[in-house]
Write a protein that binds this DNA or RNA. Structure first.
Length: 206
DNA sequence: CTTTGGATCGTCT
DNA sequence: GACGATCCAAAGG
């Protein structure tokens, strides 16, 4: 059985909420995907966050209530989607970086005809938005509203006990130390990751 | 397999 | 005026 996420479950620190979103479902009116990779972004104090300089017209949704969808446009051609979390008034969000298709494969393939295969349809934050048809028009939507066109759902599949952990992708040098924060999370063994996670250091020789 | 450069425009300096 | 929370195709090993 599927049910939308409660707002209360998204009130915590994005760094805590992010790994819990692994295996959650993002559902639209013509499809559904299971999230396999995310990144956490805080507000002030996180130099890599869009919200580090405070509220602007673009990042306004990041300051909204938990469960708000924050969609931004970047590189002149791509959209990326985030689940807003944290306390109201404090900016925070979890970037949805990759997912596997659960339903609506045909519609997604039609929106991304150049995809190499089903695994790659949502293997990347902009790919995910294109496949699901998410644009800036969806910015500010309430993902916890069971009647909404886009929503965050739960179907009983728990997040991994030990997710993959790594540094966030695409963070420039301007972010300083924040570029090294291990706030990227993924599901081990997934073939839909946007890119591999670095292998853990080798232990002593057996 | 890895690396490189182009696309393309809203946003903030 | 510079730069992206990116993607893709093409070129090189």
């Amino acid at each position: 059985m599927r049910r939308v996420w409660s707002r209360a479950a998204l009130e915590g620190d994005p760094v805590s909420v992010a790994p819990r979103l692994l295996n959650a479902l993002l559902v639209t009116n013509d499809g559904a995907v299971r999230i396999v990779e995310v990144e956490a972004y805080r507000g002030s104090g996180d130099a890599a966050s869009h919200a580090v300089m405070g509220e602007t017209a673009r990042n306004r949704s990041m300051f909204g209530p938990p469960g708000t969808l924050y969609v931004y446009f970047t590189y002149g051609m791509h959209y990326c989607a985030n689940v807003v979390c944290g306390q109201p008034g404090e900016a925070g969000a979890v970037l949805l970086r990759a997912a596997t298709v659960v339903d609506g494969l045909d519609a997604m393939t039609a929106r991304r005809p150049t995809s190499r295969g089903p695994d790659q349809l949502c293997a990347g934050p902009a790919r995910l938005c294109t496949a699901l048809g998410i644009t800036r028009l969806d910015d500010g939507a309430d993902l916890c509203d069971p009647a909404a066109a886009i929503r965050l759902e739960h179907d009983g599949v728990p997040p991994p006990v030990a997710p993959l952990v790594g540094t966030r992708i695409g963070i420039g040098r301007r972010a300083g130390a924040a570029a090294g924060f291990p706030w990227r999370y993924g599901i081990g063994g997934s073939r839909a990751l946007s890119r591999p996670f670095p292998s853990p250091p080798e232990g002593p020789h057996p």
